[in-house]
Computed example of a mutant assay.
Amino acid sequence: MLACQIHFAKKNKQGEEICGDSICVKRDEKKFAMSVSDGLGSGVKASILSTLTTSMATTMLFNGVPINEVFSSILATLPICKVRGISYANLCSVVFNADQNLCSIVEYEFPVTLYFRNKELIKLERRTIIVEAKEISFSEIIPQEGDLVFVMTDGVSQAGMGTQNFPLGFGVENIIREITVLLENNINPKNIVDHLVKLAKQIDRGTRGDDALAAVVKFKTLQTVNLFVGPPQDKSKDEELVQKFMKQDGKKIICGGTTAQIFERILKRKVELDLRSFSEEFPPIGKMDGVDLITEGIVTLTHVFRYLNGQQERLAYGASILVDMLLEADQVNFFVGRAINPAHQNPLFSHDISLKFRLIHDIAQILKQNGKIVNLEYC
């Protein structure tokens, strides 16, 4: 069964603190919906309108509401610019039903939607639907593993508009050429969208430019990562929970030395340390038969959170591997032991709130925002 993996990057218009382009993602094991919208203008007003548009479209399409009803609701909600006579936000939605292996793409006044297969551009067979006297473009395709859907706002396609090099903007043809070259050089989709947004920012240099957002959906086999952090609250359940964790499909990660010792005791297997990964800040990572990665606990998770939240750029070896595994996964299952280590308590909070719980919650929220299926089980 195929699943969708999403990556996106965006930039604000120069002088604006908020991006007027928005993205919203909803998914479970069998369905995926993503919407991207560009609010007219920039700043807070554009952000509110594009966020409203993506939230309505994604929620309704994910829940199977017919396209004409979805757009009737959106068009009735969005105001119309009195000067230009156009809606205050455009929209592109990508919906994938895994049971049917069917991808639907819906576009309303949207500038750039590109479908790639085997590193080549595939022409979508679009048909037009009229809703409230507005033209809605609709296409369907049966995806294959490795297919990519690139969606980007006009902050990318119109980057550099008015400059000597790009008087009419960077343009869709240049975007296609850029993506094709990068794919031929085996650059991964995440780095491609990062590059496109950085390129738009570079081309806009000397101008105010515009908000820009680029996203890519990759069709791939569902990949699951299971992470066990912290000892269970009830020691009598150690064996039951360890055995349950080991039966999970997908990759397995253990965070915390005490937790690793519990697995050693129950499974009667030894943790093999990788001394090459030792640093002043972190103990070495480890592996165990049946377990893909074993790391230190709270400090490693703190660095993982800071990296995912954009607070730091570099990671030690173990934290870097953990981040890569989480970002590559489509589904992340957290098993969080309730046993509280007094050394990990924040004195500003009450005794029953653990830093560990806060970290896991915050990491889980970031992963959800990045389109991951996240499950939390406390034990």
Rank of each mutant, 00 (worst) to 15 (best):
G250E: 09
G257Q: 10
M161D: 03
K244L: 08
L241P: 00
Q248H: 00
F278M: 14
V299M: 12
N185R: 14
S277V: 05
V225S: 08
I176R: 15
Q164F: 08
G169D: 11
E296P: 00
G209W: 06
V242F: 06
I285Y: 05
K252M: 01
L275Y: 12
K220S: 13
A260M: 04
A200E: 02
E184A: 04
L222T: 07
N165T: 12
Q261I: 06
S279W: 04
E296Y: 05
K247D: 14
I187W: 11
M288N: 05
I176S: 06
I294P: 00
D274I: 13
P284E: 06
D249M: 10
G209S: 09
I294Y: 04
T259W: 09
I175K: 11
G206M: 13
S277H: 04
Q248W: 00
L227F: 09
N165S: 15
D204P: 09
I294E: 03
M246A: 02
E264Y: 10
L168G: 03
D210M: 11
G171C: 10
I179Q: 11
I175Q: 10
V172M: 11
P167F: 06
I253V: 15
V299W: 00
R208G: 00
I253H: 01
T258S: 14
T207F: 02
G256Q: 03
D249S: 06
V181H: 09
G160L: 08
F278N: 08
R269W: 07
L227W: 02
A215H: 07
P167R: 07
E178S: 10
P283Q: 12
V229I: 14
D194F: 00
K190A: 08
E264I: 06
I294Q: 02
L168E: 15
G290R: 08
F219A: 05
